[in-house]
Design a protein around this nucleic acid. Structure first.
Length: 271
DNA sequence: CAGTCGCCCTGCGTGC
DNA sequence: TGCACGCAGGGCGACT
């Protein structure tokens, strides 16, 4: 489900309802996620005030004076704000009850997501320390990606989806960015020129920024914190379009598998 | 070290 | 209507 634009949309949607709010209670209905929900979370956070809601890659960070909740939405996770007495939905695993009378619900059918608690600064957490650069920040540029690609034979699509290189680029936006840049997704990373990396970085930044503006991509079940879908789906040019005509040249969009993930591209526009 | 693969889990669409 | 199968927006750890 969520790549960087969807996580950022979620963050922006829930932040105004959380910042300054006291957490009255934390309820954990299912602790078995990708990792178990941190056992001390409910006790540690209860009574604390959320000072900030930040994002690092695809991780959401709810910061309080006592520590930080680290949330990852995995493939199917979502967060939404509801009235506290609203009935639980199936797969609601954690609820953060707020003094305002609202409840932040973490729902995740496939349970690939995470809800963790750390007292240390979150950037010191093992899952966060190893993360690569933020794609929308200035230090992600053509030189950086070109340098990261040297000596690497892996397909370029897998390189830009590698969170230790650059965070937040998932399966949808990787295909879309490569199409915009005219780069074939299976091309070995080290076989791409510096100039083409400049173009690719611009493409990644633009596709992510535009998707954020549209509130993300709703394929099936992504909704922002208020329950509204994202509208970037109608701007997708290759993702999920096997056999359909390329919007640029009319050739049929092809589908292959790279790193066990479906990949779409135009064999004529992308080299 | 880089790269490949299996796997965690549930739900949905398709084809028989 | 039911069932089997493949596939899904992610990422880790074991292995070569």
């Amino acid at each position: 489900m969520p790549e960087l634009p969807e996580v950022e949309t979620t963050r922006a949607g829930i932040a105004p309802h959380l910042v300054g709010q006291r957490v009255v209670e934390v309820k954990v209905y299912q602790r078995q996620l990708r990792q178990p929900v941190t056992p001390g979370l409910a006790t540690a956070l209860k009574g604390g005030v959320i000072n900030a809601v930040e994002r690092r890659g695809k991780y959401l960070l709810l910061k309080s004076g006592q520590g930080c909740v680290i949330i990852h939405l995995g493939m199917s996770g979502s967060l939404r704000l509801v009235k506290r007495d609203q009935p639980l939905e199936k797969h609601d695993h954690v609820a953060f009850l707020l003094a305002s009378g609202k409840s932040l619900r973490f729902r995740d059918p496939r349970r690939f997501g995470l809800v963790l608690w750390t007292r240390k600064p979150p950037q010191q957490h093992p899952l966060i320390t190893k993360l690569g650069v933020e794609p929308l920040e200035a230090n992600f540029d053509g030189d950086y990606l070109y340098a990261a690609a040297q000596k690497r034979t892996v397909a370029i699509k897998q390189l830009i989806m590698n969170g230790q290189v650059v965070v937040g680029v998932g399966n949808i936006y990787a295909s879309e960015a490569l199409f915009r840049a005219g780069v074939h997704p299976a091309r070995a990373a080290k076989r791409i020129s510096r100039v083409r990396y400049e173009r690719l970085v611009v493409a990644i930044k633009s596709v992510l920024a535009e998707a954020i503006k549209q509130g993300g991509t709703t394929l099936r079940d992504f909704y922002n914190g208020a329950g509204e879908p994202g509208y970037f789906k109608q701007h997708l040019k290759v993702y999920g379009r096997s056999g359909l005509a390329c919007v640029e040249c009319g050739a049929a969009i092809r589908q292959i598998v790279l790193g066990q993930r479906s990949t779409w591209y135009c064999g004529r526009c992308q080299r």
